[in-house]
Design a binder for these strands. Sequence first.
DNA 1: GTGGTCTAGACCACC
DNA 2: GTGGTCTAGACCACA
Lengths: 136, 136, 136, 136
Amino acid sequence: MVKRDRTHKLVLAPISAAAPGALYEQIVAGIKREISEGRLASGAPLPSFRVLAENLLVSVITVKRAYEELERDGIIFRKQGLGTFISEDGVARSRAVKRERTRALLQEALREGAEAGLGGEEVLGMVEELLGEGER
Amino acid sequence: MVKRDRTHKLVLAPISAAAPGALYEQIVAGIKREISEGRLASGAPLPSFRVLAENLLVSVITVKRAYEELERDGIIFRKQGLGTFISEDGVARSRAVKRERTRALLQEALREGAEAGLGGEEVLGMVEELLGEGER
Amino acid sequence: MVKRDRTHKLVLAPISAAAPGALYEQIVAGIKREISEGRLASGAPLPSFRVLAENLLVSVITVKRAYEELERDGIIFRKQGLGTFISEDGVARSRAVKRERTRALLQEALREGAEAGLGGEEVLGMVEELLGEGER
Amino acid sequence: MVKRDRTHKLVLAPISAAAPGALYEQIVAGIKREISEGRLASGAPLPSFRVLAENLLVSVITVKRAYEELERDGIIFRKQGLGTFISEDGVARSRAVKRERTRALLQEALREGAEAGLGGEEVLGMVEELLGEGER
DNA sequence: GTGGTCTAGACCACC
DNA sequence: GTGGTCTAGACCACA
C-alpha cells in the first residue's frame, strides 16, 4: 500500500497558552487563515488529529474540537476512514465568514466611536491613518 | 427636611444573562455609555451597589464587581460611608477608553479584511456603506 | 459678654471626598501640617466642631473624630466649656510624629527597593534625583 | 508514568488576618516578592487557587482575588483549563512596579520630612543611617 | 446608610 | 482537573 503523501504539511502559527483565546480557537483561526490566504485549497487533506496534535504540542481532544467547529462552519468535511478535507467551497465560505466578521467589527467600531463622540468622518480618518501605518 | 435628589435616576439597558458578555461587564458598559453620552457628569453620585443590584435584579456582588472595574479604569471613585461618584475626569477618561477601543476594532477589522482578500479601499467602502445605513 | 476672637482663622486645604484617605484623616493631616509649618502655635485655640464642620462642609461627627485622634496623639487638648487648644508641646510632638513617619517611609522604601534589586547606593541616588527635581 | 514536578512548591510568608493589609493583598505581595527575588521565573506555573487556598488556610475566593490583581498588573496570566502562570515579562514588570513604589515612598518621605522641618541633607543622612543599621 | 473584605457554596467552559 | 462567573450570606470601618 502506498502511503499518500499529498498531505499538505500544515504549518500554523505556533499555538500558545499565553496567546489570547482558547487553544482550540487558535487552531481554528490558524486553519481559517491558511485557507483564506490560499495555502490550503479546496479538497486538500488536513492532517489527522493525532498528527496535528503532536505538531502543535496540544492534546488530541483540543484538535478534535477545532475540527468540529470547522465542520460546523462548513469549511471542512470528514470522511470515515479517509480523513478530513477542505470542503468544496471551503475557501469561499472561509472568506465570506471573514468578510462578514470584518463588517461586524466595523459596525461595532462605528458604534463605539459614536459613543466616544466621534463622527463618521473621524472614524474614516482613523481608518485611513491605520492604512497609512500599514504601508510603512 | 429637604430630600436632596441630585441622585440621578440611573436607567441602564436591561441586564440579561442571555446577552453576550458577563453580567458585570454589561453593567460596566452601560455606565460607561451613560457617562460618555453625557447623562452622568463629573462628581455625580452613582446609586449604591445595593440599590442598583435591586433595580437590575442581580446580586449585590455583581454590581460591586462592576464598580471595582470602573474604579480601576479611573472612571469612578468610591468612598466608604459616602458612596460612589463619577471621578473628576471620568468623562474624558471614559471617552478616551472608547476611542482607543474604536481604534483597536478598526485595526482588527482591517486585518480580518486583508485575510479575506479585501484591500484598504474596499474596507473604506464598507465603512461608508455602513455610515449610509445609519443615516437612513 | 465679649466674643473672643483670638480664634485663628483656620484655613485647611479643602477637604474632598475625591482625595485619598478618609475625610477625618484629611482633617487630621491638615491640622498637623498647620502646626508643624508654624501657622498654629502652642496654646492657640482651634475652632469648635460646629464652626470647622461648617467651613469644611463636612459633618460635625467627622470633625469630632479628627479632634479625638489629635487628642490621642497629644497634639491638642480639650477643656470643658472653653474649647480646644494646641497642647504645650504640640508643635514638637507633631514634628516628632512626622519625623518618625519619615523614617518609617524611608525604611519601607529601602525594603521595597531591595526587593526590586536596588542597592542602597541606588536608592540614595533616587533620593538625590528627587531632591533635584524639587529644587527646579 | 513520570510525575512532572516542575510545579514549584510555593512557600509564602504565612497569611494572617492580624497582619496589616487585606488577606488578598498579603498574597499579592507574597507572590510579587517570590517573583522579584527570582524564586518564580517566567512561565512557571502557580498553584491552582484551590490548592493555594488550602495551603494558606484562606478561602478560595480570596486567592482568586489575589490572582485577579496580579493578572491586572500583567504579572501572571490565567488560562481556563490549564492553570495560572508567570507571564512573559512578569519578572521585569514586577520589579518595575516595586521600583515605582520605592520612588513614590521616597517622595512621600521627603514631603513628610519637609513638613517636619527636615532638609534634604537630613533626610539623606537618615537614609544612610538606616543603611548602616541594615548592614549590622 | 455607605463601601471593603471575607466566607462558602454553585454552575459553566475549557483542557 | 483548571479558571470564569454568579450567588447569598457575614462582619468591619466610615459618615
